[in-house]
Design a protein around this nucleic acid. Sequence first.
DNA 1: CGGTGATACTGAAACGTTTCACGCATCGTA
DNA 2: TACGATGCGTGAAACGTTTCAGTATCACCG
Lengths: 334, 334
Amino acid sequence: MGRAVGIRDVAEAAQVSVGTVSNALNKPDRVSPTTLARVLAVIDELGFVRNDLARQLKMGAGTTLGMIVLNVANPFFADLAHASEAAAEEAGQTVVLGSSDQLEAREDRYLDLFEEQRVRGMLVAPLDGITQRMRRLRARGMPLILFDIHADRDFCSVTLDGRAGGELVARHLIESGRRHIAFLGGPLHQVEDRWLGAQRVCAEHQGVRLTHVDTDDQTIADGRAAGAVIEAMPAAERPDAVFAANDLLALGVLQALVMSDQLSVPRDIAVVGYDDIDYAESAIVPLSTVRQSTGLLAEHAIRLVLDEADDPDHSHEQLKLSPELIVRESSSPR
Amino acid sequence: MGRAVGIRDVAEAAQVSVGTVSNALNKPDRVSPTTLARVLAVIDELGFVRNDLARQLKMGAGTTLGMIVLNVANPFFADLAHASEAAAEEAGQTVVLGSSDQLEAREDRYLDLFEEQRVRGMLVAPLDGITQRMRRLRARGMPLILFDIHADRDFCSVTLDGRAGGELVARHLIESGRRHIAFLGGPLHQVEDRWLGAQRVCAEHQGVRLTHVDTDDQTIADGRAAGAVIEAMPAAERPDAVFAANDLLALGVLQALVMSDQLSVPRDIAVVGYDDIDYAESAIVPLSTVRQSTGLLAEHAIRLVLDEADDPDHSHEQLKLSPELIVRESSSPR
DNA sequence: CGGTGATACTGAAACGTTTCACGCATCGTA
DNA sequence: TACGATGCGTGAAACGTTTCAGTATCACCG
């Protein structure tokens, strides 16, 4: 296996200069039809494949976007990544995905990696707010847009209005006759808005109690564990509604509660999730939840990151998208 | 914002040659401690970030692996991607993920893209077997390992033993007293092994019938549609067991059947899925399924692709991993 | 003191592109 | 005929690294 065939080999075989080959590839209209045909034929014959590394190096600007999500195994982020990839393709960009797995070390690693890779910009769902590293990146001119974090004037962000979502859910539960809502999920700062929204609505209503049940992570397993805790509570202490910070938690709770013979959903306890992942609808008891359009989210994010990369006088935008309440059986009035 | 700071700026500021800076970065032991410290200090001060594009271009070998899966929204592939990323990180490699969405055009596009990107190797879950493009890649020396496809001597592959899985399921269903099994899923060639395994076991048993119900894709929605079809069948025609080619289909079927008042799972119809995704356990009726370790799969795949990239006298391996039957409520004997 | 290795560092030559300032015909027009 | 346009093609210079053949210095030894 000889060396890889480069643009020079093509030039030689087609009896043109390397510049012409490059033009044939990138600006076909600057080349006469006959030579263009000849060059393309040779390219095909020799099996030439342009080296994008050299290309990007020379051109300065890459065509790759780096994306860091909290956990690809979480379907919300999987959807978001998928949608972003689609939106990026539309704009001729490629997305490289990294999963921080909620570990600061991994988040940092990807930030560094992407910077070394000279990505055109980054889309980050930050683990723990805006870090020093991110500020440094911004200072060096790296386009960096954030998902789902409260506004910061120095960054673009696309946020889902968690507060509005929290309000929707709390209002719905109260109107369905629930009086003690347990907000399930942690770490709290990651889901603070949802919590605050619920809190606000609950405060407006006499005799409604809101408590917080912490979890380590937001997986089905965590939800199941929390469900067991709730089930074991003395009846007087036990909430009559659970507002889970995401659907996975809610599914876990649901499962734990259904397993138990004493309690039934939604009769004794209503359960509402967040994200409207595909499985919410096909859960043991179809799950009420809050839907957020990952497609919309992704489109805005891609638009913003490219704008920040291209437009010299780009001004940061903090977008807030409104969620939608989806009521299913798990929170029917009793 | 001036130009980006390069290795030359560092060299100048630290009063050493560019070669020394490069050495300080890559082979610190070839540099005296005092200069090393000085260089690193300058790097830090200037905020130098090495340009990986130039690096890879020069070094010839990248540190990136390209991965193409059928659909990231499918949790099996999401898990697989996640596991592969983890295994790759272990080996100091980065994984770039692309989702073909079951479209040949997208599969082709990613193959081309990754080749232009000069990835170190590719991991592909092929849409429709081995294409001409893949053979061309192999011919040009690109390491390329395949997921979940029958062996081909020219390629490495890591396959889940679908045949064994199909046998496990069929045997289990027959032993649970089922006599008419519907195999659900398509396109058939993508799940042929599972089908063949089931077929073989059924042929061994007197009075057991096996039919095939085709689907366009393998999503919950497809399963739901198929479930509706099954429900509408005259009782004599209706299967008493559904073996779905993956868990999403099974969940869809489950949902459709449970909605109906006439039929009950597992009393009238048993349902078994494939993949053991997280949600299988928390389905309306906990879903029997076949588990395949994505972790193992990923480890082998990464090992093979790196071996193919590094070892000059690498010989292709066709690995077949054995699945495990997980029996839950959805296929309890009646 | 000359020879021999080690060690630390140097600086130019690649890697495979794109870009850009030119050269060279050909052509329409005055 | 002279002249500026216009269209096509050239080839060297860069992009930011790594690598490698050297140079310089020093310690050690016979």
